[in-house]
Amino acid sequence: MKKTTIIILGSVIFLVVFFGISLLTGYNKLVDKDVSVDYQYSVIDTRLQQRYDTLTQLATAVNGFQAHEQTIYDMITSAREAYATAKANGDLQGMIDADALQSIALADLLVLFEDNEPLQATQAYGDYMDAVWGIESALSEARRQYNLSVQDYNLYVRKFPGVLYASLYSYDKEYDYWKVGADATDVPDIVFGS
């Protein structure tokens, strides 16, 4: 076999192997980033469930103190129902809206607590506030991690060579960010102690 033929054959084999490996790693990267978005979404879902449980306990705790509490309780319940419906329909914006509605209910609930001196004097009050702070902190972190993974995925499928892999493997979707109102993303500023 001539030397030129060997070089050409070698180059062809090299290119085939090179592109084969690129296609494999490109596909794996896409799957990794896609799965990461799904995972972070599931974390938000869990945290929202935890928040719903916490808010329900809170609403029950203020029961009987204010006439306003039924409105807030209804708001929490309807936010949860709206979330469940949006989730069943795969409506991300609907879920985000429900998340924001729950945040508004929480803010209203905190105002109710602040105006309620007999309740403030109880140990239960401090415990509820701790529970709220903890879950809002965790939810805020879950939203941030979700948005970071969405950003990572979206950047990859838009940039070269990810755009080629995304097109080749039909990963043409882009995820929306979890954007709730600026106020809703903050951990409530609850002051404790002296």
Binding site: W133, A138, E141
Partner: peptide, 11 residues
């Protein structure tokens, strides 16, 4: 890893 669950106190 942590998922951001925690508590804060101000002095």
């Amino acid at each position: 890893k942590s998922g951001g669950m925690g508590i804060r106190r101000r002095r």
